[in-house]
Amino acid sequence: MSLEGLSINLATVRQQWGLKDAVEACLKLGINAVAPWRDQVEKQGLAESARIIKDNGVRVTGLCRGGMFPAATPEGLHAAIDDNKRAVDEAAALGADCLVLVVGGLPVGSKDIVGARQMVADGIAATLPHARACGIPLAIEPLHPMYAADRACVNTLGQALDLCDALGDGIGVAIDVYHVWWDPDLATQIARAGRNRQILAHHICDWLVPTKDLLLDRGMMGDGVIDLPGIRRQIEAAGFLGPQEVEIFSAENWWKRDGMEVLQTCIDRFRTVC
């Protein structure tokens, strides 16, 4: 299996390397697609990050992350919109396939999840014209319901696609198996996304049993319970044939290992279990 179908989200090796070293390590192993995070780009410098990417012919399957729209004040919402427009500019400078949106949860002190979801819709709507002008698709990433309060009040693929349908061109979804594998409506919603070509990214890892930390204990592919080949078949049948992007947060395991070991394991599991 060619490594053309593999991308590494640089969160997977964020404790081992900065952007430059991570890209160089990926290239040594034949991986030519990555997805950096904005803090990694900022630390390296946007211009230097763009040079590293372009000089090495590396594909950027996504920039993480925009979003975090809900706010307790109008000023906070405006600030979030401004930050998302900057994120669009960064994604454009890197030549990214999309800007991934983790949309945000409840504002501090709020219990109004309906209102938070409206803020998300309003914030994306305000960001979209700039994203369209820059040629950067926005990819809503629905997160597991356990994150509804603090990270993302859009929790199913169906919810995300409803937003896409309401907002029009220039927006789609990032399907992260960690967040959606459990959804009994997943196959239907993947097929729905395919009809309008709304799948912009496919993130992979695994769900461990037991999971010791709901944020920082994601599993390497094959170590958990997610039917990775089955979801991949559904996504490819829906028309998305882009790279599978490995995104693993693992404070007590993979972040403590040698970076080359992590990348080689990603390659091995991609070839054998995905």
Rank of each mutant, 00 (worst) to 15 (best):
T211R: 15
L167C: 05
I175V: 14
A174Q: 03
R132L: 10
G18K: 00
G222R: 01
A201M: 13
L46D: 00
M146I: 15
A238F: 02
C153M: 08
T265G: 04
M221P: 06
T265D: 13
C274P: 01
N56V: 00
L263T: 03
V154T: 09
G123H: 08
D206K: 13
L161W: 02
R132T: 10
A87E: 10
D217I: 03
G57R: 02
N253K: 15
K28S: 10
F270Q: 02
N253S: 14
E90S: 11
A93Y: 07
D162Q: 12
I248S: 04
H78S: 15
D165P: 00
G104N: 06
G30F: 06
K111A: 14
S7L: 02
G170L: 04
R132V: 10
P184F: 12
V108E: 14
D176K: 05
N56M: 01
R132M: 07
V58G: 02
L10Q: 13
G172V: 03
V88M: 11
Q244D: 11
A152S: 15
G222T: 08
S2V: 05
V273N: 09
R151C: 00
C64Q: 09
V225F: 13
V108C: 01
F240H: 15
T156A: 03
V262R: 07
N9R: 07
G76L: 12
R233H: 06
K212S: 14
A116L: 13
D150P: 04
H130C: 07
G76T: 12
P210V: 11
K111N: 15
Q244G: 12
S110Q: 08
E75H: 08
G259W: 02
N253Q: 15
E48A: 13
R51L: 01
A11M: 14
A35L: 14
P74S: 07
T211L: 02
R51I: 00
I226H: 10
P243Q: 12
R117Y: 02
E42F: 13
P36R: 08
S49T: 00
P243K: 08
A237N: 07
Q189E: 14
P129G: 13
S7D: 14
R86E: 14
G259S: 09
A121I: 11
I199R: 03
L27W: 08
I81C: 12
D176Q: 04
R197G: 09
I52Y: 00
L3F: 07
C205T: 14
H179A: 04
P74K: 05
M119S: 03
G95V: 12
D89Y: 08
Q244K: 12
V23N: 00
I53K: 04
A91Q: 09
R151W: 11
N196H: 12
W207Q: 13
